[in-house]
Design a protein around this nucleic acid. Structure first.
Length: 256
DNA sequence: ATGGTTGCGAAGCAA
C-alpha cells in the first residue's frame, strides 16, 4: 500500500499536476493540504475518473485538507470538535484499506511569540489528543501532512540562519515529539539519515534551485505500519516544471 | 536570506 501526502497550494490551480502525479506515482491514498477549496467546489469527479474516492474538508479561500483513496474511504472524521477548529479546516481522517489515515495542515505559526505561534502549539497538542484517542482503538495509524515543523537541524538548509524563526524552535519540535510519543515514527527517517533532503522550498529567489529548503511534510506511522515499511521517497521531480506547488509530494510503501 | 513568488481575488493577506 502506497500512502502519500502533498501540500498542493490550491487544488484548483494544481489539479493538472495532481492528476499527472496520481497517474505516474500510483498512490493508494493521497492526503492533500491547502486545497483552498470549499467542499462544494472540490473536484471529486476528476479524481473519481482516475479511480479515487475522496473526502474534502474545506471552506474556501484558505487551508483545506482532503484525502483521495482507491482502497476505500470510510468513517470520515472532520476537525477536532474543539476550539482548535477555529484555526481553519486543517484535519480530516478516514479509514482507507484498513488504515486510519489523517491529512493534517498544521498552522504556520507566523512569528515566534505571536498569538499565531501559540495557537500552532495548541493545535499540535489537540492533534495529539486526537491521535491518542484513535490509537486506543487501532494499531494501524498514519498521520500525514504539512507539519510546518522541521523535526531536526538536518531537516533545514541552514539551522544557524533560521535560528529563532518558526518551524525550527524547540517548543515546536517538542510538540512534534510529543505527538510521536503516541507511538508514531517519522517514516522517512527509517529510510534516510542524511541531511539536505527537503520537501518544501520557498517560491522566492530561486530557493529550489539553490537547495534552500526544509523537510516539513511528514508521514508518521504507527509501529505496526512502520514495521512493514519498504520504501519512502520525496518526489523532488514533482517540484519542477510548469506551475509546481511549493511542496513536493512524499510517499511511503507498506506491505499491507 | 532581511528579498523574493505564488494564489486568491481584485487590494492585500498568507505562506
Amino acid at each position: 500500500m502506497r500512502i502519500a501526502t502533498w501540500n498542493v497550494n490550491s487544488l484548483k490551480a494544481r489539479l493538472p499536476r495532481v492528476e499527472e502525479w496520481l497517474g505516474y506515482a500510483q498512490p493508494d491514498v493521497l492526503c492533500m493540504q491547502e486545497t483552498k477549496l470549499a467542499d462544494a467546489a472540490f473536484p471529486a469527479l476528476a479524481l473519481s475518473a482516475l479511480g479515487y474516492e475522496s473526502v474534502s474538508h474545506g471552506d474556501g479561500r484558505w487551508n483545506g485538507v482532503a484525502i483521495a483513496s482507491r482502497v476505500g474511504i470510510d468513517e470520515v472524521e472532520v476537525g477536532f470538535g474543539s476550539d482548535a477548529d477555529e484555526q481553519g479546516c486543517r484535519v480530516v481522517a478516514a479509514t482507507c484499506g484498513g488504515v486510519r489515515v489523517h491529512s493534517v495542515y498544521v498552522p504556520n505559526g507566523r512569528v515566534v511569540g505571536s498569538e499565531h505561534y501559540a495557537a500552532k502549539l495548541a493545535w499540535l497538542k489537540e492533534l495529539r489528543v486526537l491521535v491518542e484517542r484513535t490509537s486506543a482503538s487501532t494499531d494501524l495509524v498514519s498521520v500525514c501532512g504539512d507539519f510546518n515543523v522541521a523535526p531536526e537541524d538536518r531537516d533545514v538548509w541552514d539551522p544557524v540562519a533560521l535560528e529563532g524563526s518558526t518551524h525550527v524552535t524547540e517548543p515546536e519540535r517538542q510538540a512534534l515529539r510529543d505527538l510521536e510519543a503516541c507511538g508514531l515514527v517519522d517514516a522517512f527517517r527509517q529510510q534516510y539519515t542524511e541531511g539536505g533532503l527537503f520537501s518544501w522550498w520557498d517560491y522566492r529567489a530561486g530557493n529550489f534551485h539553490k537547495h534552500l529548503g526544509m523537510r516539513i511534510d511528514l508521514i508518521l506511522l504507527s509501529k505496526s505500519l512502520a514495521d512493514s515499511l519498504t520504501y519512502a521517497l520525496i518526489d523532488r521531480n514533482a517540484r519542477k516544471g510548469q506551475q509546481p506547488a511549493a511542496h513536493a509530494p512524499v510517499f511511503v510503501d507498506v506491505t499491507l
